Simulated assay, not measured.
Amino acid sequence: MNDHIRPPAPAPTPALRPVRGAARLAVAFLALAGVAWAVRAVWEIRLAVTGEPASGPPDQGEGVHRPLTSLEDLYHQVGTAGGFAAAICAIVFLLWLDSVRDNARTLSGKQPRYSGFWLYAGWLIPLANLWIPRGIVADVHQDSAPGERLPRSLNVWWVLWLIGLASGVGLMYGDDTDKIIARAYTDPWMLLASDAAVIGAAVAGISVVRAVTAVQLRYLDGGVRYNGSPV
């Protein structure tokens, strides 16, 4: 006799921005940046093994630069290509972060802890860039999946990113290429350690993008819980 009583309709899923395509691009360009830094490391090893020419480093001081060897010239090209890859990776990553941040605000119903200004400036302002970008990503995950633990890859990514910055040859605060060449001749191990940190940050960043995207795809794809890679 209760056939006429219908169960309450489920609450509508809030309108969210699509994130799968942005996540795939972010993963692809993080991988490309990691490969670019791996190639850079190979060239630094080649420079170290070849040894500094008798004429000294490329930067002779007081504005004087000697002609580059073929290996040094190729390193300049590798560095330029890596710089372009890193710049595009940064743009694509921020576009993805803007999308998932918007969705997190919709899902949680509250304003983000950091304003939109910090989404971009937080990476550039000294001291603030030590914690704000990580905080933005952490907030996105927590607002999208309340009560769930943050992915372990988040801290791994951030620690390796900071090591890359502190080294002076990371993705953002790079030395002049001729100075890096001189360091490759005299002290390659610090360069290679920095390269390893940047490559590791790229790999961990891929895991972060996948983890954050997965929790939002549960809503975008009708409540499906992802146990594997969503992108």
Rank of each mutant, 00 (worst) to 15 (best):
E148L: 08
D143Y: 12
P126K: 07
A128S: 04
I136A: 01
P133G: 05
G122R: 07
I136F: 03
A121C: 13
P126C: 11
S144G: 10
R134H: 13
P146L: 12
N129P: 10
I132Y: 08
W123T: 01
P126H: 12
A145D: 07
G147W: 04
S144Q: 00
I136P: 03
W131A: 06
I136G: 04
I132A: 02
A138Q: 13
H141P: 00
V137H: 05
D143N: 15
L124M: 09
A138V: 08
E148G: 02
G122W: 06
G147S: 07
D143A: 15
N129Q: 10
P146V: 11
L124W: 03
R134E: 10
L124C: 04
L124H: 02
I136V: 13
D139I: 10
G147I: 05
P126L: 09
N129Y: 08
V140K: 05
L130D: 01
L150C: 08
R134P: 10
G135T: 00
I132F: 00
I136R: 02
G147D: 02
G135S: 13
P133R: 06
G122Y: 08
L127R: 05
W131Y: 15
N129M: 07
R149P: 03
S144E: 05
R149C: 08
G122N: 00
D139Y: 10
N129F: 08
L127T: 12
I136H: 02
I125T: 10
R134V: 08
D143K: 14
E148N: 10
L130T: 08
G147C: 03
R149S: 14
G135H: 03
I125Y: 12
R149M: 11
L127W: 15
I125V: 15
H141F: 14
P126D: 09
E148A: 11
A128E: 03
L130H: 10
E148M: 09
A128V: 14
E148I: 00
A121T: 06
W123R: 03
V140L: 04
H141I: 05
G122T: 01
L127V: 15
A121K: 05
V140I: 15
R149L: 11
V137S: 01
G147Q: 03
H141Y: 14
V137I: 13
G122S: 09
W131I: 02
I132D: 02
L150Q: 07
Q142H: 15
W123D: 07
N129W: 08
D143E: 14
N129L: 05
A145P: 01
I136M: 01
H141W: 08
P133I: 07
A128D: 02
P146D: 11
L150P: 09
N129I: 08
I136K: 04
A138F: 11
L150E: 06
G122K: 00
D143H: 14
V140C: 15
L127A: 14
A138L: 10
L127H: 06
A138N: 02
A121M: 15
G135M: 00
I136T: 04
A128F: 14
A145Y: 02
L124K: 06
D139S: 15
Q142M: 14
I136E: 01
P146T: 13
I125E: 03
I125L: 15
P146S: 12
A121F: 14
P126Y: 11
A121N: 04
P146C: 13
E148H: 12
